[in-house]
Write a protein that binds this DNA or RNA. Structure first.
Lengths: 250, 250
DNA sequence: GAGTGGTCTAGACCACGCA
DNA sequence: GCGTGGTCTAGACCACTCC
């Protein structure tokens, strides 16, 4: 099966959106909508170039995006095919707030603490500040509707000090959304996912039995200058949250 | 600080290894070895091109690899810099066996079951076979030295039927290593990480208390034809295992 | 031999950040 | 205005797979 011509009518060469990105989204849409099914072969690169009057590097880059997302596989001499299996979003740099929104839940936030705090050695190391320098400490319970989902502790770099007076915005959005609104260009995150028993305090906040298992994520986030923005320790109810993602062999 | 010239002496234009890959490894090595420190600026692209007699797309591709690994960040008009923070390997398509080896442990395997089994509805869906078609079922305990680390159940596509007579090789290597030795080109994996209480059987196999938390991973692996190779449900001791990785905003 | 993706070149022009 | 990365072109040659 071949990607139908009709799908390509919408390339806009005057758009600020790069051509490779437009094309990538068009093909992605063809896959997600089912017009291209698992196992189907994509039209070959050279032919796409000809039909769309694009150069081959541009077309290759569009396809590459989807290969890196795990939607397509390429084999030299054979062609490009749609991967089988359910489509799963990769882990992206989103906050739990966005995740809940996307899955149709109504995200809620209870801010337990928002204050300055001297950096512990581990927080100082993560954020690249001196030990005992003051950083912003944020302690929240995130929920879906009336159900608590996660207890989150974040330590934010002191250059975002005005977070201290933004409690209201913070309650209505995610931390990342707020950081972006401050001009931060979030780019890289290093994270660790593990599990343990809930502490008594966590159990009570999450409304689960003492000693229940919780899923934990420790994460440090960097911006496009390569400097740390914030680090956090989060713990999630195991009955309401898990991490799904796709990895691709390079 | 500028990447020193000397580092570039080793480009081999006759090697089958692509130039962009060679260059990428050279820069990566400069970062990992500390010759380039977090915050350091990389020499600009055009100048690298000139010095190495490479075209700009080739140099860009090399740098791009490292940006996608979260080692570098680029800013238009400003340059390319090394990201702060510890370097963490991304999650790769490796088996627990490889993970243990890399961290200096001595991986052990106890195979509990290796036999044909009719596919359950969910296994059939994952592997893309008919319900009740026979697949290969593999049940193992993986350990480090004498300590059990994970209980792993895998269901392998019936086209790898000769796994049934490879119990010995399997005990000494990882499943993925065996699959590759059969010509499988593992390419994409879709996985879910979660946590729950251990079942009584799991607790006994992992030598942990009943109801202890375990970290779980469900994974389906696809080859370069886009077809499923195997799917598995694994559960890990939380005191011995966690998942670390880096994600990059696209 | 024909068809496919993989690598590479040598440019071009643009958008952005800064002085 | 200048230097940086971001996008794009129009080719070239190669490696692999299948017939």
């Amino acid at each position: 099966m071949i990607l139908p011509l009709q799908a390509f009518s919408s390339l806009d060469r005057n758009s600020p959106v790069p051509l490779y990105f437009q094309l990538s989204k068009i093909i992605e849409q063809a896959i997600l909508s089912g017009r291209l099914s698992p196992g189907d072969r994509l039209e070959n690169e050279v032919s796409i170039c000809a039909r769309l009057s694009l150069s081959r590097p541009t077309v290759r880059r569009a396809i590459e995006e989807l290969v890196n997302q795990g939607l397509l596989v390429r084999r030299r001499g054979l062609g490009t095919q749609v991967v089988h299996g359910q489509v799963t979003r990769g882990i992206e740099l989103t906050s739990l707030y966005d995740d809940l929104l996307r899955s149709g839940k109504r995200p809620t936030t209870k801010i337990l603490e928002l204050r300055k705090q001297k950096a512990s050695p581990s927080v100082a190391a993560s954020l690249g500040v001196s030990i005992n320098e003051e950083v912003i400490f944020l302690h929240r319970v995130r929920g879906a509707g009336k159900t608590p989902v996660a207890v989150m502790q974040n330590w934010i770099h002191p250059r975002y000090e005005n977070l201290l007076s933004s409690q209201t915005e913070l309650a209505g959005t995610g931390l990342y959304q707020w950081l972006r609104s401050q001009g931060a260009a979030i780019q890289v995150a290093k994270q660790k996912i593990a599990a343990r028993r809930a502490s008594p305090e966590e159990a009570s906040l999450l409304e689960i039995d003492k000693n229940s298992p919780v899923l934990t994520m420790d994460r440090t986030v960097f911006d496009n200058t390569g400097e740390a923005l914030e680090c956090g320790q989060h713990c999630y109810r195991t009955d309401l949250y898990s991490f799904e993602f796709t990895i691709v062999e390079r």
